[in-house]
Design a protein around this nucleic acid. Structure first.
Lengths: 220, 220
DNA sequence: ACCTGAACACCGTTCAAGT
DNA sequence: ACCTGAACACCGTTCAAGT
């Protein structure tokens, strides 16, 4: 992970384009990787193909990434940052609606996966061979999980979610939204045409909160 | 998918070992693939490495599999069959406990993933590039989902699960167990040592049924 | 400081040829 | 009917060399 800021907006460094083809080859390689994955699948992502797309020689990527794994780790790390952003965007920021906030995180999680399938695949697909070598990755993943844990704790404190080990409840919540996200990205839900992801996300987060059990008959 | 029965037990065909190295090279290649994935990751699975492991030339696999994708599809299809078997084993077969049966399917799903991570990865990891080319695969996946749908319907008929579109409820259930399974296989839950998968599976299927909501105070 | 060209040991896949 | 050997166009990665 020699790469640092993504510098998305362009704004090339003053030191100039001398020697540069892009002003930002790392960024160009990450974009090329995402496009290759989206259009032709993870197997089509080769370092050489990404280099070709960026208009540099096959050896040039090694100036910025130690190996193919490092490029994939950069994609995954960016994905985790976009994930937390998507969760925050979907959640109301007001402190007085902890349940809405919790549900918003879930909806944002699924929306991210549906909107960034290439990122999602690299984040969770074991493409990054040795995750331990990329601690920034683990950290970024932990941040998203922490968001969920905090939201559940707030709901518990408001008396909206039942008592119990917060982390275990968070694993339930994470499993639910992650499972839906994975099934969507994986195309497993496509058997009768393309599914209404937003509707499913609402149904699933609703089930998560209220459960599948039939309401007890009053006095029963 | 030229390959047919897996003939797991050994029992070589009478027609003899003349020309055969294994009696069953397709089986040997599937086993080699699983071992390579388990020991060195999906990237280490190459057709040539599988052939080496099976003791045949690099070109020999093409007698039995059209291409690398076909070998992966065979692994995935076997996985789906093992998944349904695991679900059936974990579920009580008695007709008078639909809820236990439903929960058993969920526990069996997670147990399969934890016990067969290499299969699970190929089944859901987009390693098989063109899934449409392998209809047997889609069918085997649909079977597992159908099990869940039937179990939910039975619970609804017994008044144990609330009314509503059965398929949508099934997606909730599938998402929950699939999400936990994926997080386990992916190592995402390893941040404080290795997790107690069976305990998490119980907690998660419990949450799925009862929800996370705090019990309503009586008369409130 | 960043990039290229050539090289090495690998892949997936094909095809003529062997038994 | 099943397998091999050689071949082709690709990969990841390294390294000396260029500006």
């Amino acid at each position: 992970m020699r790469r640092e800021g993504a510098r998305r907006g362009g704004r090339r460094p003053r030191t100039g384009r001398a020697g540069y083809h892009h002003g930002d080859l790392p960024r160009a390689l990450v974009d090329a990787a995402l496009e290759l994955i989206s259009r032709e699948g993870v197997r089509a992502l080769t370092l050489r193909a990404a280099a070709r797309r960026a208009g540099v020689s096959q050896a040039a990527p090694y100036r910025h990434f130690a190996d193919k794994d490092a490029l994939l780790a950069a994609v995954a790390e960016e994905g985790f940052r976009l994930l937390t952003a998507s969760m925050r965007t979907a959640a109301p920021s007001t402190g007085d609606d902890p349940l809405g906030r919790f549900r918003g995180f879930g909806l944002g999680y699924v929306a991210f996966a549906a909107g960034h399938p290439a990122h999602f695949r690299v984040m969770f697909g074991r493409e990054v061979a040795d995750r331990a070598r990329h601690p920034g990755l683990q950290a970024a993943g932990g941040e998203a999980f922490a968001l969920l844990v905090d939201a559940i704790r707030a709901c518990q404190q408001a008396g909206l979610v039942r008592e119990g080990d917060t982390e275990t409840l968070a694993v339930s919540a994470w499993s639910t939204v992650h499972g839906l996200a994975a099934l969507v990205v994986d195309g497993q839900l496509d058997r009768d045409g393309s599914p209404d992801v937003a509707a499913l996300a609402h149904a699933v987060t609703g089930s998560l909160f209220f459960g599948l059990a039939a309401p007890r008959p009053a006095g029963g």
